[in-house]
């Protein structure tokens, strides 16, 4: 009992409850630092470390790290950048494909999800939980499994085939293994990442704002142009960045639905690590992806106010 008491008072002192501890080491077992320590340690070891490993590997000439930094080389960057700048060879194609797929995915997800987000935030009152569930469940099912489901749907003698047969369409071009199928796949997979940020930003608009606008004689189009769209901009920006970055890393979609017909940055990185066993070259390409991701992630997190999201959840 006395040991327990002593420990307890010790912990209290360390926690700063009785503020007489002068030993700075005690500060580390105080609540905020004590609670932060595990996640910080984990991320330093298995997140910062791996990302540094990618950067260091991109400067090597072989698949091992040379301890002498003087032997490091920028040759892989030179190869990739000249390829991309001149638009020739595999890198010119990869840059074009990747930029095209990612930009088109952002556009397609935006067009499809904006009306849905608007309807969910403002129009749908009954069965809202059911709708939200149907939209959330795919997010929690492996990308693998969903892409495979589409392959079964689209494949010859698949579900779509029998639907088409039912309505009397016998002949149609193959819907698998082309660049539009890849775009279709990325649009499908990343749609929720666009929908939910827009939905959350639309939830903030008060009904009073709409009434006031209507009282002042604003038509539906004016209300959308002057109120709804500007106020949903944060959601649109966050969603677009999110979708853009995630679709840059899309690999399974290109592999399963594209069947190797489209080479994107992600599939090319994977190729460098897998078949051609050229880790430095793969790493150098991954560094490009890493830089874009960090910039986009920091922008998203800066503009993301958790407190606001929490208060929206309550007013739901």
């Amino acid at each position: 009992m006395s040991t327990k008491h002593r420990l307890k008072s010790h912990f209290d002192r360390a926690a700063g409850y009785t503020r007489d501890s002068s030993n700075p080491l005690f500060a580390l077992v105080r609540p905020p630092w004590l609670f932060m320590a595990p996640i910080v340690a984990l991320l330093l070891f298995m997140f910062v470390g791996p990302m540094l490993a990618i950067v260091v590997f991109s400067l090597q000439s072989g698949n091992t790290i040379d301890p002498n930094p003087l032997h490091w080389t920028l040759a892989h960057y030179a190869e990739i950048v000249t390829g991309m700048a001149t638009g020739t060879g595999v890198y010119g194609q990869v840059l074009g494909n990747t930029a095209l797929v990612s930009a088109a995915t952002v556009l397609a997800t935006l067009v499809v999800s904006y009306p849905a987000a608007y309807a969910l935030a403002r129009k749908i009152k009954r069965y809202k939980v059911v709708f939200l569930l149907l939209l959330i469940i795919p997010l929690f099912t492996s990308v693998n499994v969903r892409v495979f489901g589409w392959a079964l749907f689209l494949v010859e003698n698949g579900v779509l085939h029998s639907i088409f047969n039912l309505v009397g369409i016998g002949q149609y071009p193959s819907l698998l293994y082309n660049r539009y199928t890849v775009l279709f796949g990325t649009t499908y997979v990343y749609l929720p990442f666009m929908l939910f940020p827009i939905y959350l930003s639309l939830l903030t608009i008060d009904d009073v704002t709409f009434e006031a606008a209507r009282d002042l004689g604003a038509g539906p189009l004016t209300i959308f142009r002057k109120i709804v769209f500007p106020l949903s901009m944060p959601g649109v920006v966050i969603g677009s960045l999110f979708v853009f970055v995630l679709s840059l890393g899309a690999d399974v979609e290109a592999q399963i639905l594209g069947g190797g017909s489209v080479f994107t940055m992600a599939s090319n990185i994977n190729y460098s690590f897998g078949y051609s066993q050229n880790w430095p070259l793969g790493s150098a390409q991954a560094v490009g992806l890493l830089l874009i991701t960090i910039v986009a992630g920091v922008v998203i997190l800066r503009s993301l106010d958790l407190r606001e999201i929490a208060s929206r959840g309550e007013s739901r």
Binding site: P50, F57, I294, G297
Partner: peptide
């Protein structure tokens, strides 16, 4: 800054995380 570091992995393409971890 703590929030930035702690939530940043959410926004990373998993391919990138997987590759880096594999090298690491």
């Amino acid at each position: 800054q703590f929030k930035l570091l702690a939530l940043l992995p959410i926004f990373f393409p998993l391919l990138l995380l997987g590759l880096g971890m594999s090298l690491w």
